[in-house]
Design a protein around this nucleic acid. Structure first.
Lengths: 356, 356
DNA sequence: TCCGGAAGGTAACGCGCGTTACCAACGCAG
DNA sequence: CTGCGTTGGTAACGCGCGTTACCTTCCGGA
């Protein structure tokens, strides 16, 4: 099987492409005519006959336009750049998917440049700037910045040279438009679901209380309770590391503190990984889900939520939608249209599975 | 969702950039001199003094080269394209990361184009061709195709126009070089680890026996056993759906078939999701991991393997390495260098955690 | 008859850059 | 003085394409 490849290409592969000139010659017309036909010019007067002759020539020769040359001549590039650490930490990969798909719909192209965890003051600090710089060298018409988790970020200076939109993060300096999840509404819908199932004593497994996700989700939870005339018992809110272990420990803490009759009957875990740990704590105590304890998560990490047993009911982060909305917003910006709002909130839908 | 946002809006943003001419004027030299300095031409005779004058001008004006124009003039584009369904199904996202990083090292750029599950004969069948076509329009110098799981694929005809390398898949028509995991060695190392821990009666939770991963891993398992003078008991090999539920059922099947003393003492799960299900089956029966039953997985899906309790020992798929190797191979190809082998196997390292 | 206009094109410029060919000035040996 | 190599540059072409200005017919009406 070990065959060495291609003996007859010496060095530097010839990008010998068919050009418009070739098409023109083959069709017996001028290059301009070809250009007119290919770009579907409105007021170009080309007879139907030559038009088809040109199209045939395009087919026969396998002509493929040169995007670079086109960009050079027309001074518009048909592409956006996205700078993201998602390539490194794929948690929010659906942002890319959503953006990619939307761009594709708009016949645009997404250049993806990696960044390390943004604002990391470590050795790789320059990477983000370099990525932005590289994208601008490609003459992207707009920039997107996407983060793996909702937070404030600083974008490089040069991002101001083209329209820029932030996805799943916001400009700490407050100048750029951003698309973020509506954490508060998400927290509300989660707790509403628990209330609706009859739970009134609800434990909360919290994230680092300082991050936007925790603040918003908790606030939403309080709102939902308030509507029902209830309050959030501070004793039932336990923070932990945002991991399965952290969730396990927090759940143990909550479950063991009370005698069975006073125990909360539901747990709102502020992310799915912690819910995963909570599952273990609950099962370990011989309790069932959702019979004895209902569990609701947040994030909808497929690998966890869909594969836990029972499958986890959770609130989904609208990554894909945010990605698409980011591109739409960028399209509006580059077209000079006004933007609806500086910060667009996107709904976090509840995903019913079997843990409530 | 995903409503198309008017692609042909006229009001294009002026990409008013500083050009070489501006730099030249500002430095009081010719544009050629600037070009020579910026491209570090070997035998260009430019005095040290004008050289610094030019560099200063570049700084002061914030000149940024136009990648498109450069590509047009030099007929080389500094970028590769990668067509992949990974954007849709992020399982193997590290391939992109590895490729991206390696490309970045080579000062190249990766254009990522989405494809649906390849060879899907569904409604989206054309997407892959379209993606390839778009990439060729950008004049990529080489193409990568990456799959989420190891399998044979067909690539579009036009891929033959530039050097092409397949990652985590292979050309069903046998013409293109590919980078795939060494499944067999992975299966071997997994079972070797179990043997080393003293297990001789090993159950195997198998995937769809037809796919390359299952074939290779099972073969490797047999080899390892053979070295130890053992054989694989066909009764201990149970196939199931490649999900947690599938793993759960298969594990139940194996565990319940024998009385405790005849029961296998270890399970080799051919992927981590199935191991996740197996965990449940084992715990449900009051057995401990790894005390009563050792479990070893395959794939190293971080979200599962690192968060299961106990953490799962598993064989990692070398996605990142495959991505990097893919780019390296492509670089060699585009440089006209011969390729080592048509199919390169990449090692699957064992990741020790706590389940053996 | 002449004029006007539409239909069906084409020549030529420039986008920003890499690259080749050429040129002026200078030093220095013969 | 001539000849010749070296140093330090520059003019000009072309990459593939969008675009503008212009140029020919041809036809119908006054």
């Amino acid at each position: 099987m070990a065959k060495s490849t291609n003996p007859d290409t010496p060095v530097a592969v010839k990008q010998r492409g068919v050009t418009m000139k070739d098409v023109a010659k083959h069709a017996g017309v001028s290059r301009t005519a070809v250009s007119f036909v290919l770009s579907n010019r409105e007021n170009a007067s080309i007879s139907e006959e030559t038009r088809t002759r040109i199209n045939d020539a395009v087919q026969e020769l396998g002509y493929r336009p040169n995007a670079g040359a086109r960009a050079l001549a027309s001074r518009r590039s048909d592409w956006y750049g996205i700078v993201t650490e998602i390539v490194t930490a794929p948690f929010a990969v659906d942002i890319i998917k959503g953006a990619q798909d939307q761009a594709w719909l708009d016949r645009r192209f997404l250049l993806i440049a990696p960044s390390d965890q943004a604002d990391a003051v470590g050795p790789n600090e320059g990477l983000e700037d370099a990525a932005t710089e590289k994208l601008l060298e490609q003459r992207v018409e707009g920039l997107l910045y996407a983060a793996t988790f909702h937070r404030g970020v600083h974008v490089p200076e040069s991002a101001n040279e083209v329209p820029t939109v932030l996805i799943n993060c916001f400009d700490a300096d407050g100048k750029l438009p951003s698309i973020v999840p509506d954490e508060r509404a998400g927290g509300r819908v989660a707790v509403e679901r628990l209330l609706q199932a009859g739970h009134t004593r609800i434990g909360v497994i919290n994230l680092d209380p300082a991050i936007p996700a925790a603040v918003g989700r908790l606030e939403g939870a309080r709102e939902a309770l308030a509507v029902a005339g209830l309050e959030l018992d501070p004793e039932l809110v336990v923070s932990g590391y945002a991991t399965a272990d952290g969730g396990y420990e927090a759940a143990c803490h909550i479950l063991d503190r009370y005698p069975p009759q006073d125990r909360p009957t539901a747990l709102f875990c502020l992310n799915d990984r912690m819910a995963m740990g909570a599952y273990d704590a609950i099962k370990e105590r011989g309790l069932t889900i959702p019979g004895d304890i209902a569990v609701i998560g947040f994030d909808n990490q497929e690998l966890i939520a869909a594969y836990l047993r029972p499958k986890l009911t959770t609130v989904a982060l609208p990554f894909e939608k945010m990605g698409a909305l980011g591109v739409q917003t960028l399209a509006a910006l580059t077209a000079g249209q006004p933007i609806l709002a500086d910060q667009q909130l996107v709904d976090c839908p509840l995903l019913e599975r079997s843990s409530v």
